[in-house]
Amino acid sequence: MTDWLHLVLLIALVVVALDLARLRDLFAAAMLTGFFSLLCAVYYTIVDAVDVAFTEAAVGAGLSTVLMLGALSLLDERVETGRVRNRIGALSAALAVAAMMLYATPDMPAYGDPTSPVNQPDRPAWRYVHQSGKEIGVPNIVTSVLASYRGYDTLGETNVIFTAGLAVYALLAGVRRKRGQDAE
């Protein structure tokens, strides 16, 4: 049953991505990215990544769509001209990358394989799963890895988000006032 749901979801993801490539209306494309994220969130729930699904549903389907629509409302161009440059070059580049990766897939562990390299006892994830209950005492393993085992990582990510906020503020609020570009 889950296998079927799985298959249908993955096919739907590819179909939505194809539709994104085809759409010219930027507003429609922005809304469709929200739907794309929602499909991803359902998929993440099926593969037991509940925290990721939660984040994707809140961020991808909610916030990033709002930000994209907010940016689009600042532009007058709502529809792309549809001038597609170098279609053959783009297609061959995409296909070349896809072919190289397809060539590599048979070496990858099968989906859900418990003996895959990432699940071996000498990998960090083994310790997270089997020791975090004793070492950290927090039931949600993702929280204990995020905040404690990989605290430096998360500190970096928080800084990146803060820097992104600063950058957007500098781009949209700071520069304009100084140079007085209203004269143009």
Binding site: G137, A147, G165, V168
Partner: peptide, 30 residues
């Protein structure tokens, strides 16, 4: 560990909420 995780998550929560709102405000006030 409990205390540390609580503080860190609090920092992340405040930081992310403020930054996301800040991003939205930057676009709208522009």
């Amino acid at each position: 560990q409990h205390l540390g995780i609580f503080m860190v998550e609090l920092g992340v929560g405040i930081g992310v909420a403020s930054t996301m709102l800040w991003l939205f405000y930057s676009f709208t006030s522009h």
